[in-house]
Simulated scan of single mutants.
Amino acid sequence: MDIKNTLQSFSTMTYSARQQFMGQNGDWMLQEMLTHIGSPDAELRDKLIYRTFIDILSDNLLSTEQIQYLFDTAISDDFLYLNIGEEMTDSVFTRSFSALLVASILAKDAELLILHDDRLQIFFQKIGRFLLLEKDTRGYVQDKGWAHSIAHGADLAAMTIKHPKFDLQHAPLILHALKLVTWKDIVFVNDEEERLINIIEALLARNYSEEALIEFVEQVFDKFEMHLVTQGYNDAFFSGRTCTLNVMKTLYFALKMNNLAPKLQNTIYGQVAKWLKLGA
């Protein structure tokens, strides 16, 4: 069977027909979907494989063993971390869409609580590495569709924080990655900021310390001073400054519109005003 044709056919099946198909061919189809999760064919990767993963998770068409297998495979070095650090190569599609798959599995497991605790805890301890190490910042890739690895990594980090078994002691590792993600020698242009601030909103929803987030914001802006002292006004400073300010402004308005964390709002406002020299 050809996986593309199979998924096209699967998308038109009734629920009962899907159940029967998964009972007979589910393991084969899942393996093929994983094999091609990073395909440069946007239709196969995004419109068929990713959407089918969402459908079969939402419709409870997977066994506990299959969900665990997908999770263990997707978080591995051959998927979520495949060749991480590379730029401008097709490996980004495997990393990026593995991130989306893991986020979807975590959302489902938040309801079911079936994933093995020991594997979850190992994953929680490492999650900050993805945004920290990912260097391929492309959004839409001509002829290949969306890569968007930074945005998908942000989605994964936010969903990880929302998981009921996530221990907030791991939050500083995610915040460290968030602090540095804006210093990748590029200014984001595909709404990555809106996805990145979901990390902060997820922490607030878990009652994470507002004081700790204020300290995080102060450290974010301390990096401006540190860069100027060590490297001066170079291209990296201006791209990092602009990208960081864009994220912080987006966060400020999100907090203000939702009446969240007033002290954090004030800290962000003061720092943004300082570095934009407002009122100077």
Results as ranks from 00 to 15, higher is better:
2 D>C: 05
4 K>N: 02
6 T>V: 10
12 T>L: 15
15 Y>E: 15
18 R>K: 15
21 F>H: 09
21 F>T: 11
24 Q>N: 12
28 W>S: 14
29 M>K: 04
32 E>H: 14
40 P>Y: 07
42 A>D: 08
42 A>C: 08
44 L>Q: 00
44 L>F: 08
52 T>K: 06
60 N>R: 14
65 E>P: 04
65 E>N: 03
66 Q>E: 13
69 Y>W: 14
70 L>F: 08
75 I>W: 12
76 S>T: 02
77 D>L: 08
78 D>S: 15
79 F>Q: 06
81 Y>P: 02
83 N>M: 11
84 I>F: 15
88 M>F: 11
92 V>Y: 12
96 S>I: 13
98 S>H: 00
100 L>I: 12
109 D>I: 01
110 A>I: 00
111 E>D: 15
112 L>S: 13
113 L>A: 04
114 I>D: 04
117 D>H: 10
120 L>D: 02
122 I>N: 04
123 F>K: 04
130 F>L: 15
130 F>G: 06
131 L>Q: 01
132 L>C: 01
133 L>D: 15
137 T>F: 07
139 G>N: 06
141 V>N: 07
142 Q>V: 02
146 W>M: 02
149 S>L: 04
149 S>Q: 10
150 I>S: 02
152 H>P: 04
158 A>H: 00
168 L>I: 03
168 L>M: 08
170 H>I: 03
175 L>I: 07
176 H>L: 04
179 K>I: 09
179 K>L: 10
182 T>R: 01
187 V>C: 03
191 D>L: 14
194 E>Q: 05
194 E>G: 14
197 I>Y: 10
198 N>D: 08
199 I>P: 00
202 A>C: 11
203 L>V: 07
204 L>P: 09
210 E>H: 09
214 I>A: 05
214 I>N: 03
216 F>Q: 03
219 Q>G: 06
220 V>P: 09
222 D>M: 10
223 K>I: 05
224 F>Y: 13
230 T>I: 06
236 A>L: 08
237 F>H: 05
239 S>I: 01
240 G>K: 01
242 T>D: 12
244 T>R: 00
247 V>E: 06
247 V>M: 15
248 M>K: 03
249 K>C: 12
253 F>S: 12
254 A>L: 14
257 M>L: 15
257 M>T: 14
258 N>P: 05
260 L>W: 11
260 L>S: 09
261 A>G: 14
261 A>M: 10
264 L>F: 04
265 Q>N: 07
265 Q>V: 08
273 A>D: 12
279 G>L: 01
